[in-house]
Simulated scan of single mutants.
Amino acid sequence: MITGYCANGDAVTLSTAEPPAALRADLVWIDLVEPTKAEDLMMESLLGITIPTRDDLKDIEPSSRLYIADDAVFMTASLVYRSDTEMPGLTDVGFILAGKRLVTVRYAEPRAFGLFKAGIGRFPGGCRNGVVILTRLLETIADRTAEILEQAVLRIDGLSLEVFGDKTSARRRPPQFLEARLRDVAGHHRLVAKTRDSLASLSRLLTFVYTLPDVQEDKDSRELCRSISRDIQSLSEHAAFISGNITFLLDASLGLINVEQNAIIKIFSIASVVLLPPTLVASIYGMNFRVMPELDWQFGYPWALAAMVLSALIPFFFFRWKGWL
């Protein structure tokens, strides 16, 4: 699907069924979402540039992600999408400055694009050309990334309370509960790792954008680009801090699982020690020797039972006195 946007935010759908002879002069942004081969060919003929394919966008070489060709600037950044689900991921988005227009090529729907489209007509000074659209879009992407990290912090704080529990509660959590929290920790780690990769990609792109002559000639865009770069740097440091907290939470969860398992093993060990003396008494009187005085004793059976109970209670209260239970 191809959608064009004017400076005032009006949207125009471009279709291969009725291809236009030329692009409208007031179109400042053309957004290609999962374009087909026919749509790529149509835009290439209208813009006079080569539209990168999905495989081109996946190229990780910096020289293949940031370059100038055919009098156009080609840039690729990795953005986080599906951040609100259990399987967040990265999608590669192409940004092309072709003359006074911005062309974006993407095969997913990062939420930042929806937010930008909703407010495209409300930016101060308007979005008069592709450079302004690009810097404003990058600002929205940075804001959305900050929101993703903020939401991750809130969820990690809640998970930390679940792992460590309330100080006023002495209730012991089973190991299965903590093992389930480990899966939650892994999900948060995946989201933060994807966000850090995205921030690194955006940092390289912004450094490249700042050196473009069109950006240097526009004072507002130049200052906005510098501001976004500082924000990206701060977000990268914050993401590293969150990643450290997740690592601590992971280690703490594993340690608590070991503590709970050791407590269970300790209970079985103490139970075996407590039951050992009664077993010894029962074993002695279970021997079939001919000469055993207690066999003819009228109170032998109650005596054996009392001896077994007493031999179990003595070590039990001893362990309680020592604080081992």
Rank of each mutant, 00 (worst) to 15 (best):
L14T: 03
S269M: 02
L159K: 02
Y5L: 03
L138A: 12
L41F: 07
V274T: 06
A21S: 13
A312W: 01
S243W: 02
R172Y: 04
D214I: 09
S63F: 09
Y285N: 06
L115H: 05
K117M: 11
F319I: 05
M287G: 04
A200I: 15
L32R: 06
S198L: 12
S78H: 15
Y210E: 10
R82H: 13
T76V: 14
L205S: 12
G9R: 08
L57E: 08
T36M: 14
E179F: 14
P174K: 15
F177K: 14
W324Y: 01
T211N: 13
P174R: 11
D71I: 05
P20M: 02
A282H: 01
A118H: 15
T36R: 09
V163C: 02
V291D: 11
I2Q: 00
R136Q: 10
C6M: 14
L23W: 02
T195P: 05
V163T: 08
V209N: 00
E109T: 10
L178D: 00
S283F: 02
G165K: 05
R222S: 15
A108R: 06
D71C: 03
P302C: 02
D26T: 04
G4W: 11
V291T: 11
S45L: 01
D59M: 11
V273T: 08
E86H: 07
E44V: 06
I49G: 09
H238G: 01
S221M: 00
L149H: 10
T279L: 00
R136T: 08
R230S: 14
L66S: 00
V259R: 10
R155K: 13
C6N: 10
G126F: 02
I314R: 02
